[in-house]
Design a protein around this nucleic acid. Structure first.
Ligand code: FES
Ligand code: FES
Lengths: 145, 145
DNA sequence: AAAATAAAATACATTTTTATCTTTTATTAG
DNA sequence: CTAATAAAAGATAAAAATGTATTTTATTTT
C-alpha cells in the first residue's frame, strides 16, 4: 500500500509529535531506535519533510527534529502525499492511464469506494491525534517481537 | 496499491476470459495489444499464472492462453495473491512487523477496515463477472487516450 | 575562537521491480 | 517428416526503491 519510505516517515513523524509536546527536539538516531527503522534512510526522508515544512529541524548541539506552531493542524494525508504523491488517491486500480467513470475499468466502482475510504481516513486523522494514541499507550510504533 | 505486474496480469486474464467463452486461444501479442501492456513482461506473468493453474496454455500453431473448466470459479483474489502475495491483506499499514489488535499501530482499526473492504471486493468478484463487464461494453481494459 | 554536535548534502551500494532479447521446447499444419 | 508457430525458459539490462557511508554546513557550548 504505502512505500517503505512512507511507512518510516509516518512512524517517525508521529513519534516526533508524541515527544514534541514537551518542547524537546529529537535526533535521527533516537527516532530510529524508537521506531525500528534504518537510520540513514529515515534521515533522508525527514530532511525532505523538513524542506516541505511538514516538520521543523535545527542543526548543532541540542538540535534535531521537532514540530512548531505552523505545523499544528497537519493531517496524515499531507504527510503521505508529501512522500508517496497522490497517485494512490486518483489512479486506476488496474493501471489504466486515467481513472474515469465515463471509461471505467471492470472494478472502477468498487475500487473507487476503497480508495475514497482510505483518503477519508487519512484526511480525518490529524498527527496530533495519532501522537496522542501513542503517548497514552493505546497504540505503538514498533512491534514487540 | 497493486504492482505493475499485477495490473497487467489482471487485465490480461480478464481479457482472456472475455474471449475464452468463444473457445479460442489468445497469443501474448494479441493480448498485449488489446490491454496496452509490455509484451515480454506480460508473457512472463502469464507463464507464472499458467504454472499456478490460474489460466491454461498450449504451445504451437493455434496455441495460446485460454480458460478451461478447472478455472471456472476463480475470484479476483486468487489472481492477485498469485502475483503479489497476500501481504496486503494481513500486513500493518505502517509496516510494523506484525499487525495485531493487541499491539496496534495508531491507524490499526481504521486501516483494518479498508484492508478488509478491499479483500471483500476481490473475494466477491469472479473473473467471469469481470469479463462479462468487458464483453458487454460496460467496462474497458485500456484507456482511450 | 575552538571544539563538539547534529542536520544537510553528496556519493555510493544493494536489492527489487520492470522490461527486453535470445534460445529452447512442444505442438500443429502441410 | 519438415517447417512453422507459439509458449517456456533463460539471460541481460535498465530503472526505481531501499539502504549505507562520507563530507559539508550550521549551531551551540566551553
Ligand atoms: S477506471 Fe479503474 S479504478 Fe477507475
Ligand atoms: S497494527 Fe498497523 S494496521 Fe494493524
Amino acid at each position: 500500500m504505502f512505500s517503505k519510505a512512507c511507512e518510516y516517515g509516518i512512524r517517525a513523524v508521529i513519534y516526533i509529535w508524541s515527544q514534541s509536546k514537551k518542547g524537546n527536539k529529537l535526533g535521527v538516531k533516537d527516532i530510529c531506535k524508537e521506531i525500528d527503522a534504518p537510520e540513514y534512510f529515515t534521515a533522508k526522508i525527514l530532511q525532505a519533510l523538513a524542506r516541505q515544512d511538514i516538520v521543523s529541524s535545527t542543526k548543532g548541539p541540542n538540535g534535531g527534529f521537532y514540530i512548531d506552531k505552523e505545523q499544528e493542524n497537519i493531517h496524515l494525508m499531507d504527510l503521505v502525499v508529501a512522500i508517496d504523491g497522490d497517485k494512490l488517491f486518483y489512479g486506476c486500480g488496474l493501471g489504466l492511464k486515467q481513472c474515469s467513470a465515463a471509461n471505467p475499468c471492470p472494478i472502477h466502482h468498487e475500487y473507487k469506494e476503497i480508495r475514497e475510504g482510505l483518503a477519508r481516513l487519512l484526511k480525518t486523522k490529524t498527527l496530533r491525534e495519532l501522537a496522542e494514541e501513542v503517548s497514552s499507550g493505546k497504540a505503538t510504533l514498533h512491534s514487540i517481537i
